[in-house]
């Protein structure tokens, strides 16, 4: 009987490991074959003006925190409307992944871009964390209390990420900069 349990569990584990390995290998291959155009097309439209309004309520164009008394004028309801609620944040979350891949794409040709790509990756993880906190708050009925704080942080990080990706492409003198500016 014990031997039977062993075989069942071991074979299940083996199948799971093999399937996972194949799935991620295929995903990696698809990602390696992705062209720059494909990446840009994966960016989902989001109201840039709304993003800038929310972000610039907290930071300056240069990313410095605004002085006390000159910031955080937008309340929770306004931020919610400008963003389009949690759906808007989910779009930001998905776009962040594309921004990270755009930085990684440049890194294929210019390894020096690695440091920026890694930093942008950490920014994207931070946004994921904020969005997951908000989703958790939505489930427990505390969304209103947390929304302004976490959502605005996520938007500021996203706003700065878009600017940094554009700067990175500009510095590398990449030919598709104008198209990227339009898409972002």
């Amino acid at each position: 009987m014990r031997n039977l349990y062993f075989v069942l569990l071991a074979v299940l584990l083996l199948v799971a490991l093999t399937a996972t390995l194949i799935r991620f290998y295929l995903r990696h291959r698809r990602s390696a074959e992705t062209s720059w155009q494909d990446l840009v097309h994966r960016l989902v439209w989001i109201d840039r003006d709304a993003i800038a309004t929310i972000a610039l309520d907290a930071v300056t164009e240069e990313g410095e925190l605004r002085p006390h008394g000159d910031c955080f004028a937008l309340d929770s309801g306004v931020i919610w409307n400008l963003l389009g609620g949690l759906e808007g944040l989910e779009v930001i979350e998905r776009n962040c992944q594309v921004l990270v891949e755009l930085a990684a794409y440049l890194q294929r040709f210019y390894p020096e871009a690695l440091v920026v790509a890694e930093q942008l990756r950490l920014n994207a993880r931070e946004i994921e964390w904020h969005v997951s906190r908000l989703k958790g708050a939505a489930q427990t009925g505390n969304l209103e209390a947390s929304f302004a704080n976490y959502a605005q942080r996520a938007v500021v990080i996203y706003y700065m990420m878009t600017r940094h990706v554009l700067t990175l492409y500009d510095q590398a003198q990449f030919p598709g900069l104008a198209e990227l500016q339009q898409a972002i």
């Binding site: 930071v59 990313g63 410095e64 925190l65 210019y110 020096e112 871009a113 440091v115 920026v116 930093q119 942008l120 950490l122 920014n123 931070e126 942080r153 500021v156 990080i157 700065m160 990420m161 940094h164 700067t167 990175l168 510095q171 590398a172 003198q173």
Partner: peptide, 19 residues
Amino acid sequence: MKMQIYTLNRQVENDLRRI
């Protein structure tokens, strides 16, 4: 350009820390 990229990296790092 390498210098610019390293400056950019510091900016991205600082932004996140500030936020």
